[in-house]
Amino acid sequence: MYEFQYHRPNSLEDAAKLFDAAGDPQYLAGGQTLIPVMKQRLAMPSDLIDIGRIGDLHGITADKNALTIGAMTTHAQVASCDKVRESIPALASLANHIGDPAVRNRGTLGGSIANNDPAADYPAALVALGASVQTTSREIAAEAFFTGLFETALEEGEMIVKVTFPVTDCAGYEKFPNPASRYATVGVFVARTKERVRVAVTGAGLSVFRAGDIEAALETDFSPDALDGISISADGLNSDLHASAEYRANLIIVLARRAAAKANAA
């Protein structure tokens, strides 16, 4: 790993000042992706600004309309929080299946979505639930936030503060995990709110995307059988040693059916 300077600010203001003053800085959240990437020498920030102890980035609040989760909330905290389990149980379940227990104790919501790994779980939840991302300078709708492969709408130095999820009528998430990493080979999040259905797919493309045909079918009939006869084109889907594009296309339908069944049972 290359050398760097380490900073641990206690406030958003101090973090921003440190970022502006540094040559090639990067924010450090839980480090579960950044540290391995730095070990491989694929990243060499001059300064790491550890935002893990900034109070404004922690905490979970809920009311009858929305659930708001601070950016530095760990996957384990999301998974075990009663407020999350009661208002959006599918989100708690998703968090409980990221990586492994030790990774979930360090990895954070904000870190995950800022990285926008194409196989990460959270992007599917944010897009399907119609979440909004509050940053240090603005609010960004989830669909506008995830812009491409490891790319987001975040500007240089802009930091995620919290994510707000509107409470849905019901939701379900299913993934086909890579057996080693537990990243989603494909993951499908289905959410229904006031007769509207949103379906988001992760792991299959360069970045999370919505599946319009599946949404339309589930809006007509919110049951797994509604997806009989629907097929997804493999064009543009990821293909690697774990799964071909055609296999992933098929998985999208299979997992959408399971996610819809889960949502119905919720």
Binding site: L28, G31, I35, L48, D50, G52, N105, R106
Partner: peptide, 15 residues
């Protein structure tokens, strides 16, 4: 009290 992978945490994060 929480299980973590010590190869994926900087020593200074444990201050």
């Amino acid at each position: 009290g929480k299980a973590i992978k010590s190869c994926t945490m900087f020593a200074h994060q444990a201050e």
